[in-house]
Simulated scan of single mutants.
Amino acid sequence: MIVSINQPAYLPWLGYFDRIAKSDLHIVLDHVQFEKNSMVPRNKIRTPQGWTWLTVPVLTKGRSSEATIQDIGVNNQASWGKKHWKALQANYARAPHFAPHKSFFEDVFQETWEQLFPLLERTNGYLMDAFNISTPLVRSSELRPKERKSELVLELCKKVEATTYISGPFGREYLNLPAFEAAEIEVVFHDYPHPEYNQVFDGFEPYMSAIDLLFNYGPDSRGVLDSSCESLTPCCGV
């Protein structure tokens, strides 16, 4: 059982989906503390000038510092949905495959989202379908873990009977690799080489939201997503 674990993110980049595609099961880390400056509520889209942020405003003032991702509310006083929809129209209307996905995103941005996590579930689920990724998902909150940091990752892996764990590259800095070895769980690191492809504007900007690829390549997006060379690096000694 090859398992990956990641916090959900708003319209994530390609590496997020590549890691899921390489997994037999993906655990959505929804029970951990929300970090305001993380990629959970925001991501980048392409513009003629380069790129810009799309950020979902969240309700943090007066909230507990221990508020989790699954509990974070959305600040709908900012009319963010209308702004995001206008940004997509302004920058992707001429993209070759914007039209087939237009109605979905228009509906998403017209809906009132009281909490952030359901929005992430809806949009990321749509992108997984568009990229033909069928990896099953489970929320970490459903597994009721008790540990933190490296011990949390190991606990979650054990709960789903993982034999291989796909870690992000920063796992090299904090994972207790001997503990994984003792549990007979192989650790591999996901170093995703970003593919270069034609974007709607001249030049290439990497690390955009995955919608950038989708709007430009449509049904051929999965081929581009998979086109980079091998991205999994075995961990020495495990």
Rank of each mutant, 00 (worst) to 15 (best):
R42A: 12
I45G: 03
T47H: 05
P48G: 06
P48L: 08
P48R: 10
G50N: 00
G50E: 00
T52W: 00
V58W: 00
K61S: 13
S64K: 14
S64A: 14
E66T: 10
Q70Y: 09
D71G: 09
G73T: 07
N75M: 08
N76V: 11
K86H: 10
A87I: 08
A87K: 01
A87C: 04
A90V: 07
R94M: 04
R94V: 03
F98T: 09
P100N: 07
P100K: 12
H101M: 12
S103V: 04
F104Q: 00
F109Q: 02
E111T: 10
E111N: 13
Q115V: 02
F117T: 02
P118C: 09
E121I: 13
F131L: 15
T135E: 07
R139A: 11
R139G: 00
S140A: 15
R148V: 14
E151C: 03
K159N: 06
V160N: 07
A162M: 12
T164N: 07
G168F: 10
G168M: 05
F170H: 13
F170C: 05
G171I: 05
R172P: 06
E173V: 06
Y174G: 14
N176V: 06
L177K: 14
P178I: 12
P178G: 06
F180Q: 11
F180S: 11
